[in-house]
Amino acid sequence: MKAKDIMQRDLTSILADESIDYFIKICKRHNVSALPVVDNNYSLVGYLSESGVIKAALPDYLSLMQTSAFIPDSHQFFTGLNRILERPVKDFMEAAPLKVHPEDTVLYVADIMIKNRLKFIPVVNEENRLIGNIQRISLLSNTLNEDFLE
């Protein structure tokens, strides 16, 4: 089974100059935890996830620590989040995003998603244009399928 067999043919994405505020709205309404960032030709230029936004909203020194147990109080987080709401996506996106191609095997996709703890990965064509996405849940639900490993 290949990436193209389990991907959602959906181009939901955000442009690099749009705000963090709108990123949160799209994720909430679409029920996704991350979005591909594209340019005017749908070329993939970045990736932003909920955790990317959370990290950006926290004081810098906390990003050095591995656990959120060090956050003094959530007030600090919400103040930080409010400060970045109007900032553009490009300031916080992952500029060299992980991605897969439609002909990649599902095992390869699973490997990348699990190793990098991704809930969502963009699928691009040979010209690096966004053509869809794979969510971790569709990977899991497809393991129930008999020809998953073929």
């Binding site: 959602q8 043919r9 959906d10 181009l11 939901t12 799209i26 309404r29 679409h30 029920n31």
Partner: peptide
């Protein structure tokens, strides 16, 4: 698209061969 009905449409469409979705979701 929007709301529960919007999600139903989105899910049904994005699983059809030769159909790609690119909807803006509203409240």
């Amino acid at each position: 698209l929007g709301g529960f009905i919007g999600s139903v449409i989105h899910d049904k469409l994005s699983n059809i061969k030769n159909v790609t979705t690119n909807f803006v979701f509203t409240t």
